[in-house]
Each structure stands twice: as C-alpha cells, then as structure tokens.
Amino acid sequence: MEIIKIRYTFRHKGSGNIEMKWYSIGQLEERAAAKLSPVFSDEYELISRDLFTGLKDKNGRMIYDRDIWDIGRRFQVEFEEDRCGYFPFANDGGCGCCADEVYQPYEGDIIGNIYENPNLLEAAEE
C-alpha cells in the first residue's frame, strides 16, 4: 500500500514567495507541525493541501492534485468525486479525457503545479 502523502503550499506574507513542503501522515502524526518547518508559522499563509494521487508520471515523479500534466496538451490534475479518481482537466474546466482518449500517467510528464507555474496552463491556451 502506498503511503498517504500531502503537499502543503504556503505563501510568505512579506515577500509573496511560494514554499512547498511534502509530508507523509506518519511525519505529521510524529510531532507538531510547527516543529516540522518554519512555514507552519504566522509568517506564512497556507494556500493549499494537495493529496498524492498514488500515481507517478513516466519519469517516476509523484503526481499530486493540482499538478500540471503534459501529454502533448497540458492539463491540471484534479480529483473528481463523482468518478472517485484523479483526472486531467483543461484550463476551461472541461475534462481533458473522453471515452476514446484514455491517458495513463506514464504517458506524460508532470511539468509543474498551478501555484508555482500558473503560466504553464495559460501558455497552453494561446
């Protein structure tokens, strides 16, 4: 069974810099969050908690919710409750997969995420 992992995304209140930290549930249960990293302080604003999907891209990189996935076309990875899984979504909110187009994680690359690289999805629309 794959370990449950969470990616935390923070914004520094003074500089606006984005910081990301990755933790397993075991690490979070082991000690208080404030002792894990300085980002768990009043100097930072929590932007998002993103779960590891349990999938890896063709290079073995872990895929998290809200990552940007490139399979020749760029998509944002999102969890869809109705279908109980993670799927690629186009920037317009439409599902990036259809019945005749089923993509596997190993077919593409994770090239960033919507917090550090929002321009990657914008560039894909042009």
Rank of each mutant, 00 (worst) to 15 (best):
R66V: 06
D92L: 07
S37E: 06
G14L: 13
A32D: 14
S48M: 11
R73I: 07
E45F: 05
M20E: 14
L121K: 06
S37P: 01
D65G: 13
N117R: 04
I71G: 03
W69N: 00
I18W: 07
E43G: 02
N91V: 10
I111M: 06
S41K: 11
E116H: 07
G93T: 09
Y106V: 14
G72E: 08
N113T: 06
C98M: 07
K35L: 14
A90P: 01
W69Y: 15
E2N: 11
R49D: 10
I18Y: 08
G14M: 11
G54F: 01
T9E: 02
R61K: 15
D57T: 02
A33R: 11
E122H: 09
D42Y: 08
L121F: 10
H12C: 09
I25P: 01
F87K: 02
D65L: 10
G94V: 06
Q76L: 11
Q76T: 11
D109M: 12
E43N: 04
R7Q: 15
Y103D: 03
D65A: 14
F89Y: 15
G16T: 12
I71A: 13
F75M: 03
D42P: 00
D100W: 09
A33M: 08
C97R: 05
S15W: 08
E126T: 02
I114T: 11
C84A: 05
E125T: 14
I68L: 05
A123I: 14
A123Y: 12
R83P: 00
L46E: 14
K21E: 15
Y8L: 01
K5T: 06
I63M: 09
Y23Q: 12
G108D: 03
K35Y: 08
I68W: 02
R31H: 08
D82E: 10
C84L: 05
E30H: 07
I6E: 05
R11V: 04
C97S: 11
G112V: 04
E125K: 12
R61T: 06
G93A: 05
T53R: 03
F10E: 01
E29N: 14
C97M: 14
L28M: 15
R74E: 08
A99L: 13
G16Q: 14
K5L: 13
W22A: 03
Q27A: 08
F89R: 10
F10S: 00
F75G: 01
G26W: 09
C84S: 08
P118I: 03
K13T: 09
Q76W: 01
